[in-house]
Amino acid sequence: MTNKLEKLPKDSFERITIDSTQAEKISKPSLSFWQDAWLRIRKNKAAIVSMFILIFIVFMTFAGPFMVKHDPEAVKVSHANLPPKVPGLEKLGIFDGVGKLGSKTVNLYELKKIDTYYWFGTDSLGRDLFSRLWKGTQISLLIAFVAAFIDVVVGVIYGGISGYYGGRTDDIMQRIVEVLIGIPTLVIVILMIMMMDSGIWSIIIAISITGWIGMSRIVRGQVLKYKNQEFVLAARTLGASDRRIIGKHLLPNLMAIIIVNMMFTIPTAIFFEAFLSFIGLGLQAPKASLGTLINDGYKFISYQPYMLFFPAFVLSLLMIAFNLIGDGLRDALDPKMKD
């Protein structure tokens, strides 16, 4: 092999000096934790699509009731039990106002001589289901967000104090949690609801009364893990105050797990609201939520299945979207997943 090599020009064997600091150069651009997470979640198509669906639903909960001229709570018995009718689509043979009357299939709009359009139909009291659906979704989302927010605040504070101060404080606080965690959520939610008058706030309180426990346990676990790590010990050695350690060193490390858990708390809250309304412990008419709408629709399933399908569809879509976003965030924020 040396034969071939001798053809190499002599000067190629000159010694050169290489700045060895060059070799230390980091070729990848440095990304902050959140930039990195954003890059990751952007690759997760399901999460991105879910985010758009969620934005659309939230937008509709505000815009929807104004898109039609019917009031979501106005009763108009003469317009009761109308099937969906949408201008344009009606010519295609769907959403054309045809529904069942007894055992016959007829166009109920023509029969009742109604010339207005109810896009998603009306319920047994003649309330417009389109505006009711979005109004109801709005209330369901409101309940879920507020409940999740309370869970996060209480859970983080409780878990944080318990984990950070440790010792006796932790002991007592954890004994309380261990007793509370034994009480089934279903049981406590039902008992709380029965104690209070039904309304948005009773539902929120009932859902959050045990909801924070999960969050507090996770936060406590994380605080325990981080508080003895070298970077916190180093900060303490340098004389950082508790406030600074919590604010600057612990909280940023907890943010990811808090956000991910909140993402899973929201669909749980949506579910419980719908569940309570379905078994008759939720909101009372004329107020609507996804749960009450599904409950109303269920009663008429044989004759007016659309009454059930629209709210059930929106509820399912919301649950799926939140779960997929939660999954996506968990994957994106989990440092273990880094390559």
Binding site: L8, F13, R15, I18, S20
Partner: peptide, 28 residues
């Protein structure tokens, strides 16, 4: 000194040249 080469884009010549004080022109 330095770090091992990035094998996503391995160097053209002698992989160690960048960290070596004995590098020759041809190493690159």
């Amino acid at each position: 000194p330095g770090t091992p080469p990035d094998l996503l884009a391995p160097p053209k010549g002698d992989a160690f040249a960048l960290r070596s004080e004995y590098a020759l022109k041809i190493d690159l």
